[in-house]
Design a protein around this nucleic acid. Structure first.
Lengths: 157, 157
DNA sequence: ACAAGGATTTAGAATTATTCTAAATAGAAC
DNA sequence: GTTCTATTTAGAATAATTCTAAATCCTTGT
């Protein structure tokens, strides 16, 4: 069994496990992403896929990509399609995007951590900026529950 | 001198230092960003500014924001307005965006570094994803020169 | 004061990536 | 084989941003 066939089998399994169908379109989109690992955009993927399947539509490419991401078979590099946000905090800091509220919080980023991150870069890579973003929810149900219990114990308002 | 006046003075200095003019529009845009530090989008800034200056246009807000960013007075949180990119590398990793070529490279991200980054979050913040992106240029002129010298020394092809 | 010239603002058109919609097609299950 | 649901498709719609060209505003030289 060659590598392409193996990947297709893996894809089919992941899809059926999620109650989704392994279609030719999903296969070919997955294949071109594996073929040339250069972080292509949806448009680039569309162009590459069209040479093998000229009738495919761009909407289908977007659909397939969404499915593949959901199945955990590919990652999207550039989550941040939300509008650009502006902040007057000029100190080095990271951001926390709260999925629940849509709010963005500043997270302090120590200078030595930043230096350490830069040191991850192989020689020849020279980063002018480092962006660190967390995404999740603030005060999960468990945390809220804990807070509530603490408040009850201390007899607070 | 109150804080608003001080900020305006700082703004005016930065602008004139860069050969730009301190205009009422730039002042009011800067003011609303300082006023409520909640990482507003351009649209939100537009709405807030309009209550003080109803004739301002959205294009001007974008222009002012660009100017303020250029002067180093505000930062944009969400650089990534380029199209979303997809990658089949499912291991935890960071990305390096090469400004010169537009290419994106994977950077290995050790598990303990990742854990360390998560530990920066204050209690109650629960991150489901961590995104680390570098931006810069690969193989600067200086690095290329050094490579060249090394090659010459070792008599390589 | 006044004219020239560049910077800035403005409204609206254009662009770009993406999502939505509704109809057509294709498979799976009974 | 019919029914049901998933998927694909083309094109319209949306949303953030940038572009364009005209109007306005300042600054500077005279």
């Amino acid at each position: 069994m060659n590598s392409t066939a193996k990947n297709c089998a893996a894809l089919a399994k992941r899809l059926t496990d999620s109650g989704l169908r392994p279609t030719p379109q999903r296969e070919v989109v997955f294949k071109v992403i594996l073929e040339k690992r250069d972080h292509p955009t949806a448009d680039e993927i569309f162009a590459r896929v069209k040479s093998q399947m000229p009738t495919i539509s761009l909407a289908t490419v977007y659909n397939c990509l969404e499915t593949l991401v959901q199945c955990g078979l590919v990652r999207q590099v550039n989550l941040e399609r939300a509008p650009t946000r502006y902040c007057p905090n000029l100190h080095e800091h990271a951001h926390f995007h709260d999925d629940a509220t849509g709010q963005v919080h500043d997270i302090n980023l120590p200078a030595d951590t930043l230096k350490q991150l830069r040191s991850l870069l192989p020689p020849g890579f020279d980063a002018s900026t480092v962006e660190l973003a967390f995404r999740g929810s603030k005060g999960s149900a468990r945390a809220k529950l804990a807070e509530g219990r603490a408040a009850a114990r201390s007899g607070a308002n």
